[in-house]
Design a protein around this nucleic acid. Sequence first.
RNA 1: GGCGCGUUGGUCAAGGGGUUAAGACGCCUCCCUUUCACGGAGGAAUCACGGGUUCGAUUCCCGUACGUGCUACCA
Length: 512
Amino acid sequence: MANNQIRVRFAPSPTGGLHLGGVRTALYNYLFARQHGGKFILRIEDTDQSRFVEGAEDYINNCLKWCGIEPDESPEKGGEYGPYRQSERKPLYAEFARKLVESGHAYYAFDTPKELEEMRNSLKSDANPSPQYDQQIRGKMKNSLTLPAEEVDRLLKDQTPHVIRILIPPNETIQFTDLIHGEVSFDSNIVDDKVLLKADGMPTYHLAVVIDDHLMQITHAFRGEEWLSSTPVHILLWKYLFGVENMPAWGHLPLILGPNGKLSKRDGAKYGFPVFAMNWADHVSGELTEGFKERGFLPAAFINMLAFLGWNAGTAQEIFSKEELVKLFSIERVHKAAAKFDFEKAKWFNQEWIKRSNAADLMEPVKKIFDLHHIPTFTDEYLETVISLTKERCTLLTDFVLQAGYFFQTPRAIDELSIKPKWSDEKSLFFTHFASALEGLPDNNHDTLEHLFKEMATQQGIKPGELQMIFRIMLVGEKMGPGVFTIASTLGNTETAKRIHYGIEIMNALRK
RNA sequence: GGCGCGUUGGUCAAGGGGUUAAGACGCCUCCCUUUCACGGAGGAAUCACGGGUUCGAUUCCCGUACGUGCUACCA
């Protein structure tokens, strides 16, 4: 195994649905890995047992599968650096935490949650609304820095609940070069003594990322910008544990915003767009959060749209296949600023992808949607024809139900109001004759039908144009769809005649 | 409050000391089509503000404002 191989990871915690931002982080990781011939790792960060959600991990796997960005190593697939679930690596973290205590970079803290709360409450003021456990106050708390050694030993021996906190050094400037933001620096005096190991023996994120990134040989760590502020803690940990020279390069991805600030599940329900990749049903509340998949998005369109939320190739091209993205993606061109998610633009990406897809490639997802609506799609050949006829008017896959449904089912109701003012005995007669003629016709090709239609209209002294809209509404039910004769031809003479008779019936009934 | 990050049309954004400041989405008008779409042609709309630096700032620097994130034994 080459030691200089690029290795990146996507490290979600299984606490619920996977939203846009998460999938984008996974995507950028995937693109980066593929482009450099590296490995893309999925690591499950399930160190918070209280937030564990049943099924969330499977859901993450499924989303990545649907998007076509599957990891090379993961809890599911395994790999040389496993286990890939942090809960299964528990003993490891405590060891490193102890090492930090021994080297004087961390300490035991015995403060109870209640005591911490009291400390915060008593120190809270307008000038300092959220007091931290830092160099100002750690000397006043119950920890191995303030307690006599014998007492600490006794507390430890008695298995008194405790945590291990990092000891942040004073007066240091912690600086690093972010792949996206450039030089970023922090004053260690404002960094607090973060908990590294919790009372239950589980590590916090801060400890776990550093250890696992090291053990899993991660070379580039991409994550959301919400992590930028805690990067100094991670850098210090790298320095104490493995050496900053071995630290992965950091890249903090800009946030994705909703219409009002940070994008949330709530925004989806509020504004009517999906936020998760796929449907997510909360096991406890039963609440269903809609996914892009079920809303009718093609995976290719979804990742294309996601890739463009914060990145662009610097050219006018906007439609990219996954393969093209792998080739062209560059972390240098990732925007620094957060992007507001625009569902209209997202839909446009999907529409473009539907339009550009071969009808054959759309058959599977489209058929699934019709099945869901209990609409029979007849033969594959027929379905494919219908898709090619209608795909350019569908923005979402679900639009096929409305845009193509009439090819499979006789419209239940027709737009009578649009026909009514134009309806007359002559026209009724025309359609009766035309329908009969149709029934005796040997073929149903487009041109034959059009000629017959126009010929008969002229014979009866009616302008063909005055009849076409009526004809369309009888076949489709509405003023929409491809050319009327194309529709009639596709439907076949028998079905066409049937719909005409039905239309005549409705219109004549309306006049009585 | 502190600290970090950010700020080009409504949205995504290119660009970057001298430009008519690209393009896309959306919106509007027109053409095509006796339908709906697609397609085509146009249109409205932008460098947050204030100071510098400079012959010249949207671009560089500093402030301010605004947005956003962090400030948990959550990630």
